[in-house]
Amino acid sequence: MRLAKRYREMRPPEMVRMFQTIERMEGVLNLSIGEPDFDTEPDIVEAAAKAGYDGFTHYPPLQGFLDVREAVCRYWERHHGLRADPGEVYMAVGGIQVAHLAFAALLDPGDEVLLVEPYFPPYVSQVEANGGVPVAVPTREENGFAPTVEDLKRAVTSRTRGLLLNSPCNPSGRVVPRRQLEEIAEFVGEHDLFVLSDEIYESLVFHGEHVCLATFPGMRERTVTMAGLSKSHCMTGWRLGYGIAPEALARTMTVIASSQTYGLNSLAQKAALYALDTQDAKVLERRAIFAERVASVAERLNAMKGVRCPPADGAFYLFPNISGSGLSSEDFSWRLLEEAKVATVPGSPFGRSGKGYIRIACTQSQDTLMRAMDAIEKFIDTL
């Protein structure tokens, strides 16, 4: 069967190649996957089962059940002061679908989107798949990988249409401070841009505060807030995401998705309804555990020869600088996997700013993390 020309030369991205290799190996200490090691809480699972017994086994409303969208609104007003209407919420198959639909609805061919480095790699292909041109905005470790307006001004052109911002950040763990977000909001208004604000890690901030970009004056009408329950409520396998956007855009995203996924799983939505309204205390408990893990791993890394690990203010990742090892990020990660059976992700797929770094996900038990640190330290000592 002949493939379409645009896919004939397609090869798995670096991160996917790493994941596929790990699947074929045994005994790997896996610090590569951004998935909480906690199972979904049993009462959330029971809520989904009850919904099934209650007859929620049919097609859902395409934009999502009204009561679920209302729960999303309650959650964001309660935690972040964002007042939204259910008509502005689209329930998606994971947060990543929100980005795809938003780009599909907003981009014309040749429109440029600023991607703040280091960025989640799939966003590059999503912009390109929807006719846009991804434009990388480098950041620096000395600035905490937080973008400045000067960084954005160097990248903006007359073809710039949008900005993708991720805070807390995958992979760096940065949380963009309120003052910088205010300056970014002003920049966005001056250049009449839309913003896809990836706030999927909003519940995991250890230092400082999470500030919702859409709460700044003039930003609600030009911001798509992307979030979900994968990280906050340990529901990665449920594929629960949502976007909060201007109502006309949310409707357009719904129409586009009607020919793709035709709504989000009914039972998963009812589980989300229960989770959003009842799990705040559990979310805080897990946040404290992740904060402890991230701090202890950073301490170990900073004690290793040739490694410098910037602190993480949020998410559950660390982004250590391993350039002192004399290896590139790709060589370091692949050799570490092959020789020490510790899986990490090279920093290079996250943009040019990631060269010389690796991503470590602190999503394993403390014992597993410390055993992995022992193995990394031993590996580095042999270089």
Rank of each mutant, 00 (worst) to 15 (best):
V68C: 00
G173D: 05
Y119T: 07
Q20S: 13
D367M: 06
G87Q: 08
E23D: 12
A361I: 00
L31H: 03
T344A: 04
G354V: 00
R74D: 07
K270A: 06
T252K: 12
G241N: 07
E35Y: 09
R251W: 12
Y317K: 01
G351E: 02
M373A: 11
M304V: 12
P138R: 11
Q366F: 04
E88R: 12
P36V: 07
A291I: 10
A275T: 10
G27R: 07
E285I: 12
S266M: 10
L3G: 09
N170F: 11
V124D: 10
H210R: 13
S353F: 00
F56R: 04
L264W: 05
E14W: 06
A288C: 08
T148E: 14
R178E: 15
V137H: 08
M226Q: 08
E117P: 05
E142F: 12
V345K: 00
E77K: 09
V124H: 14
A129R: 13
V113S: 03
E190V: 07
H233T: 11
Y357S: 01
T368M: 06
Y242D: 04
C73D: 02
Y242C: 08
L29T: 08
P171R: 03
R174G: 02
L66D: 08
F38C: 05
R140G: 12
V307N: 03
E141M: 15
R308I: 10
V195Y: 00
V89Q: 09
V307M: 04
V224W: 03
C73L: 02
A248F: 11
G189Q: 15
L193R: 02
F216P: 02
E183M: 14
M10C: 09
R8Q: 15
E339P: 04
L383G: 14
N170K: 02
E299S: 14
C73P: 00
Q260H: 15
L249P: 01
C309G: 07
E202A: 13
V175I: 10
K231G: 05
M304Q: 06
M226R: 04
W238H: 09
G351I: 00
V72Q: 00
I22E: 02
F187T: 09
T157I: 06
R11S: 12
R300P: 02
R251E: 14
P217M: 12
E14T: 15
S197V: 01
K153V: 10
R286G: 02
S348W: 06
E46L: 14
Y123K: 08
V294C: 09
F145T: 06
E46W: 04
G354S: 03
T21G: 04
L82I: 10
D111T: 06
E26I: 08
E142N: 13
D280T: 12
E247A: 11
G110R: 06
D54S: 14
D67C: 04
G263S: 13
K50D: 09
T252I: 13
S323G: 06
D67G: 01
T363A: 09
E221Q: 14
A146L: 07
